[in-house]
Simulated assay, not measured.
Amino acid sequence: MILKKLAVPFAIATLAGAAHAAAPMAKTQAPGFYRMTLGDFEVTVLNDGTVDLPMDKLLHQKPEKTAKSLDQHFLKNPVETSVNAFLVNTGSKLVLIDTGAGGLFGPTLGNLVKSLKAAGYQPEQVDEIYITHLHGDHVGGLGALDKPAFPNAVVRMDKRDADFFLSKVNLEKASAESKGNFQGPINAVSAYASAGKLQPFDGNTELVPGVRASSSYGHTPGHTTYVVESKGQKLVLLGDLMHNAAVQFPDPSVTIQFDSDAKAAYAQRKAAFAEAAKQGYWIGVAHLPFPGVGHLRGDGKGYKFFPVNYSVPR
């Protein structure tokens, strides 16, 4: 009698277990945003996705040395590398710093607008866009030709980058494999330029109260970091002054193939790391693992990075 009573419930439980086991793998992440307060400002980091980078081939050191550093951080080549952008709400202006890759780097990137909307904003609300430099993974998300992704925004970057990457002469002179480095940015800014909303600046400039451009030329001719300050709190957005934490924090002298002037890029990184460690302010980096925000401390000849402690804005 006891066995008969258990038979039906046991069969139901078995079927239920089988149904759960058959659920497919999701294989996706939620749209990426991380929000923090900075004085009276609110900063939202937006993730555009990730891209696999063969650091053993890109970084200027022996591949086996790179592999050893990666292994110490439980990483291997190619390294899945975040592409981050930063949305700063000053209370009067909504400022986006970098825009991700858009459609320029394949299907694993181009998620910035999705992340922006998940964070509670619409593209039409963005007032100003500041570009650290005109490589495709920072400018591609602006849109293409006559389709601006942020229709009400003014777009700004250092004139040295604009003069180089938006030059039709440079596009025509470029090799076949390099033409995309110019055509992508030209297409991305086209609609803004036509509307009179492309406004390059010249060197160190305050762009809106609390946000200023700081020249850090080297990675590209006009590479720029952006300094965000409110109520004594400071966040410096380093753009592409670095690409890999496992290698370049312990040894900032290691440069990367993407640098247009590796010597100058190293000098800028060295100075930026030293100042951040000395003053203790926040840094935000485009290619650190999302959200790419934290602090630096000196560690021998290099540095240790301390990622932001997960917190909820209050």
Rank of each mutant, 00 (worst) to 15 (best):
A188Y: 02
S230M: 06
L241F: 08
S253T: 12
S215E: 15
G184K: 00
H243A: 11
P185R: 08
S175N: 13
L235M: 15
G222P: 06
A195M: 00
G222M: 07
V236F: 07
E206V: 13
F182Q: 06
V227N: 06
Q248S: 07
G184E: 01
H243E: 14
V211T: 13
Y192H: 01
A191G: 06
T220P: 05
S230Q: 03
S253D: 08
G222Q: 01
H243P: 01
T225P: 00
E206C: 03
N244G: 07
V247I: 14
N204Y: 09
D202Y: 00
G210C: 09
G239P: 05
S215M: 14
A213C: 15
N181Y: 14
F249W: 15
Y226D: 08
N204Q: 12
T225S: 06
A213M: 08
D251S: 13
L235H: 02
S194L: 00
T224K: 09
N181T: 12
K234C: 11
G239L: 04
F249L: 12
T225N: 01
P200R: 13
L241A: 06
S190I: 00
V208N: 00
A213L: 13
K234I: 12
Q248E: 15
Y217L: 13
A191Y: 05
A176D: 14
K234P: 11
Q233R: 11
L198N: 11
K231Q: 15
T224A: 07
L235D: 06
G184A: 03
H219Q: 13
H223I: 04
H219R: 11
L235G: 00
L238S: 11
Q248D: 10
L198I: 07
S190K: 10
V208C: 00
D251Y: 03
G210F: 06
